[in-house]
């Protein structure tokens, strides 16, 4: 008799393990990391999985064994109905989880600090982006370049990107799985996210926090381009004749789904702060002015 599983079983097992991984290879997954943050997250996933096997495998192996060996029909097995305690097992039962959790705790503590989304990434000439969550689109302001885009985030490869986030509507959450993330954007508050792309490409970005009927259409493209190309793009966009003025922003901040990305030139300085401050300092604002009014003042 041949040892091992029948061929059908083996191919099924292979399918069960391989299919998810190959699926992730063709999708916006952090398993397809394109930057240092997502890469570390992917590695961490495997480290944690491996450590957990220490706790989980005894269950997966032990349970079927115990069930088979001590089934009702097996009269050969030891039957000790009053056996209900053993100090040796007690040490094992509490000890193994304690040790595994202790190790995991150390891993957790160090990686949480190392991968703190607020921590600036090393590298020269950081790009600053200010993301404003709107219904159902993202506005990305480049304060140093005085330009802005909607639903397209262009970043240079190899340079750290610092994103400030706020919302001019309900709470949302920004994630670009292949680069890392995510962090919530909330009105009247500023949250931060630091990312970097290692290789050029187009990466899927999304809002993950439900915000109404256009939610499932609220995604954006992240375009990572070589550094020189980024500077050229920024300069070219700044030349454009589509300023982000008061009326434009008012229109933009209405509920809507944007079919194609938009670029804006001539973004007034301090726009992000004004959008945020609108909700922070009530005495400066009438209670229910249309969103974005003040941003243009």
């Amino acid at each position: 008799m041949r040892a091992g599983l029948p061929a059908g079983c083996r191919s099924l097992l292979l399918l069960l393990l391989a299919a998810p991984l190959s699926a992730c290879a063709h999708s916006p997954s952090f398993f397809q990391a394109a930057g240092p943050v997502a890469a570390e997250q992917r590695d961490l996933f495997w480290i944690v999985t491996a450590l957990l096997m220490l706790v989980v495998l005894p269950v997966f192996i032990g349970l079927p064994y115990v069930l088979w060996r001590f089934r009702q029909g097996n009269r050969q097995s030891d039957y000790r109905p009053t056996w209900d305690f053993s100090w040796k097992l007690e040490w094992l039962v509490w000890g193994v989880p304690v040790v595994v959790v202790a190790i995991l705790g150390v891993v957790l503590w160090t990686t949480t600090h190392r991968l703190d989304p607020y921590k600036r990434l090393p590298g020269k000439s950081e790009v600053r982006v200010q993301a404003v969550a709107l219904d159902w689109k993202w506005l990305f302001i480049y304060p140093d370049q005085h330009i802005a885009t909607v639903n397209r985030l262009v970043i240079p490869v190899g340079r750290p990107v610092h994103i400030d986030l706020t919302s001019d509507t309900v709470m949302q959450s920004l994630m670009i799985p292949q680069l890392g993330g995510q962090i919530y954007a909330m009105a009247g508050m500023r949250t931060q996210l630091n990312l970097k792309a290692d290789r050029p490409g187009s990466y899927f970005g999304e809002n993950t926090q439900y915000n109404g009927k256009g939610f499932h259409k609220q995604n954006f493209e992240t375009l990572a381009v070589p550094s020189a190309a980024f500077d050229a793009w920024a300069a070219q966009t700044a030349q454009g004749d589509r300023p982000l003025d008061r009326a434009t922003y008012a229109r933009l901040s209405q509920e809507s789904v944007i079919a194609r990305p938009i670029s804006f030139s001539a973004v007034p300085a301090g726009m992000f702060d004004r959008i945020m401050r609108k909700y922070m300092y009530p005495e400066h604002k009438p209670v229910s002015g249309p969103a974005g009014d003040e941003a243009m003042q």
Partner: peptide, 16 residues
Amino acid sequence: GIMLAVPPLDYVVHNT
């Protein structure tokens, strides 16, 4: 659950 308890992992799978 343990994976989600690790904040850096939670960042990429939260809300998914």
